[in-house]
C-alpha cells in the first residue's frame, strides 16, 4: 500500500490550467470565459485544451469587452454558475472596475446574503517580461482596498493550483493574480489530484533570524536571491515570507516572523504610495511595534507608470536594491 502522492512537473501556467480542468471535471457549474480562451487557449495558453475537453458551452470566447465579461459573469454567478473570468492582462481590467467595485464585491452585502457572487477573476500581471505598454501594471492595491473581494497571488506552480481551486470553491469573488514572470520560470512537482492552499495563509519559504523579507508574486524570486546572497556574503539570515494572499493578509505569519527577527523589509513591484506594503507596515505597527529593532523598509516600484520595457528593469525592484535595504536596516 502506497500513500505517495502522485505528482507531475508543471510550470505555473500549466498548474493553473490543471486547476481549472480539475474543478471543471468535478463541477458542471464551473465555466471559463474571456477573450481568446477557447480555441486559442488564451494568450498565455492558460486555458489550453479546456474547450476541447469541456466544449464551447463551458469554455466561452466572449466579445472583447472587459466590463461585459465581468458584468455577465456576475449574472451567471448570481444564478447558479461559478464563472472563472479571464482578463487578458490586469492592465486591461479598468473598464470592468465599476462592475467589480459597485456590484461583484458588494452584492452579498447589499442584499444581506440573498444574492452572492462566487466568481474568480484571473488576471496576468506585473512587469519584467518585455510586454507592451499597459500590460505590466501591478494594481493589486486597487482591489485590496475594495471591501468584499479577496486578492490572491501565487508565486509558484504548487500554490497556483491549490489557491486557484480554493478560489473557485470560495463563496465570494476572488481576484486571482498571476505574475507573468513566474508563468514559466520554474517547473516543480505538483500533485495530480485536487488539493487546496488556504486563502489568507502565507508561506515561510526560508527560516532566518536577522530580518523578515516579505514579498509576493514575482518579487518572491527576487527576495530569495537577495536572501541567499546576504547569507553568503554577510552571514545575515533572512526569514522569507511569501504572502500568497493580499486580502486578507496572514497576520499571524507576519507577526510571528517580525517578532522573531525584529526587522522587516517589504518588497513589491507596485508603486510605493498606496501599495499593499503600507498595510503590512501598519499591521506590524499594530502587532509588533515594541519588538522592532529598526524601522521597517519598503522596496517598491516607483510612483510612476510602469515604463516602456526598454527601461522597465530600472522600475522593478531587484536583488541589489533589496540587499541594500537589508544592510541599511541591519546596520541601523
Amino acid at each position: 500500500m502506497s500513500t505517495a502522492v502522485k505528482t507531475q512537473k508543471l510550470t505555473m501556467v500549466q498548474a493553473i490550467t490543471d486547476a481549472m480542468a480539475t474543478m471543471m471535471r468535478e463541477h458542471d457549474d464551473v465555466l471559463v470565459l474571456g477573450e481568446d480562451v477557447g480555441k486559442n487557449g488564451g494568450v498565455f495558453r492558460a486555458t489550453e485544451g479546456l474547450q476541447a475537453e469541456f466544449g464551447e458551452q463551458r469554455v466561452i470566447d466572449t466579445p472583447l469587452a472587459e466590463s461585459g465579461i465581468i458584468g455577465t459573469s456576475i449574472g451567471l454567478a448570481m444564478n447558479g454558475f461559478r464563472p472563472i473570468a479571464e482578463m487578458q492582462f490586469l492592465g486591461f481590467i479598468y473598464p470592468a472596475f465599476n462592475q467589480i467595485m459597485t456590484h461583484a464585491s458588494r452584492i452579498r452585502s447589499r442584499t444581506l446574503g440573498h444574492f452572492t457572487v462566487p466568481m474568480v477573476i484571473r488576471a496576468p500581471f506585473g512587469a519584467g517580461v518585455r510586454a507592451p505598454e499597459i500590460h505590466s501594471d501591478s494594481v493589486e492595491s486597487l482591489f485590496t482596498h475594495m471591501p468584499g473581494i479577496k486578492v490572491v497571488v501565487p508565486s509558484n506552480a504548487y500554490d497556483a493550483k491549490g489557491l486557484l481551486i480554493a478560489s473557485i470553491e470560495d463563496p465570494d469573488p476572488v481576484l486571482f493574480l498571476e505574475p507573468m514572470r513566474c508563468y514559466r520560470s520554474h517547473k516543480i512537482e505538483v500533485p495530480e489530484d485536487k488539493y487546496t492552499v488556504e486563502i489568507g495563509k502565507g508561506a515561510r519559504l526560508q527560516e532566518g533570524e536577522d530580518i523578515s523579507l516579505i514579498a509576493w508574486g514575482a518579487m518572491v524570486d527576487v527576495v530569495k536571491k537577495a536572501a541567499k546572497e546576504m547569507e553568503e556574503a554577510e552571514g545575515i539570515t533572512c526569514d522569507v515570507l511569501d504572502l500568497r494572499t493580499l486580502y486578507p493578509l496572514d497576520r499571524d505569519l507576519i507577526t510571528e516572523s517580525v517578532q522573531k527577527t525584529g526587522r522587516a523589509v517589504i518588497v513589491h513591484e507596485a508603486p510605493g504610495t498606496g501599495g499593499v506594503g503600507n498595510d503590512v507596515v501598519s499591521l506590524i505597527n499594530d502587532t509588533s511595534f515594541l519588538h522592532l529593532r529598526s524601522p521597517i523598509k519598503r522596496v517598491t516600484g516607483h510612483d510612476t507608470p510602469v515604463p516602456m520595457f526598454a527601461i522597465e528593469d530600472h522600475y522593478l525592484p531587484d536583488a541589489e536594491r533589496v540587499k541594500q535595504a537589508i544592510i541599511d536596516i541591519v546596520r541601523f
Partner: peptide, 12 residues
C-alpha cells in the same frame, strides 16, 4: 451596469 447582470442571469 445592470444590463449585463440581466444578460448574465438570462444566459444562465
Amino acid at each position: 451596469s445592470q444590463l449585463l447582470h440581466a444578460t448574465g442571469t438570462a444566459w444562465a
